[in-house]
Amino acid sequence: MKHPIIALKHIDNLWFQVTGTLCNIACAHCFNGSGPGVKTFGFLTIDRVRDELETAISVGLKAIFFTGGEPFLHPQLLEMLRLSLDAAPTTVLTNGTLITDRTADELAKMERGTRYSLEIRVSLDGYTEERNDAIRGRGVFCRALDATRRLSQRGILPLVTVVRTWSEEEELTTLAGFVRTLRQAGYSKPRIKILPSLPLGRELTRAQARVASAHSAVASLAREQENQQDASLARPADAIPDESLLTEEMLVGFDLDLLMCSNSRLVTDRGVWVCPLLVEMPDARLGDRLRTAVPHYELRHVACTSCYHYGTICGNVSAQIEGPADATTAPDFSPARFKPSVLSG
């Protein structure tokens, strides 16, 4: 089967897997299998970060992201962030558990001193301790909420990222639950970004079991709803899409800017990868350094299909969950299913 080949149009986004796969917690759905003692990928040095930043700045870099593992395990992370914020808006993806008062002070000082946005993305997977810690580990819920409070008290509004593990019917009550929890924890203007769960890493085995049971539940629900509405609404949002791999035909008329491979690269201690999602795929390694990395990539993984379906998953604005708009002569303005008042409380 011939898969589409995507050329790098421009490095808009440069990602650093700054602590490799080392993390202080081990989430059940981690897409790159990070955890305590996991050293598939190692730490980046500050010299390496500086060198690759210079390369990307010279070609017109737009934004910088630090991920891991857990970035705050790196002893020089704050120094790296200062370098980065001198050049471009910068985002850190963290579980929040290591953000002490002192770190929050430093981040706030940095944020005030730059003209570019500093985004701290804190992951949370449930709005109750029970639900969150079942996925992310004991004690993580309280520590992550502490981080959001510490940051917001200092003028930083963290972007709380939550992986969608609920059905569309539960969307609004779930989001309202997150808003309520964050406000109760002392974060008064909560910002939330929803991520699709990805059929990668630990999530792959977890999802396979869940999809089997979800499909049987959906089948029975669909029978009940036969004469009502589209049964696909009841399908769990995190089920692996049926179409597993991309074809060239699928990309005809598709906005390639929604695919990270057209505008992003990831730097790790083992070389340059096409995107953060494919870091476990050896074929997604494009070279040693940014300046010598291969400028195109063949989309042959299921994760590429996720990016196609959901849009720029890793960016700071939520993924485009509903897909691109189609041209029609008579748009359908049937009443939205959403009742936003649920969220305003």
Partner: peptide, 17 residues
């Protein structure tokens, strides 16, 4: 073009509403 949305790319359900 008679498109179905404004192409602002919102995904937050409240913004989308």
């Amino acid at each position: 073009g008679g498109l179905t949305d404004c192409q602002c790319g919102y995904t937050d359900p409240r913004d989308n509403h």
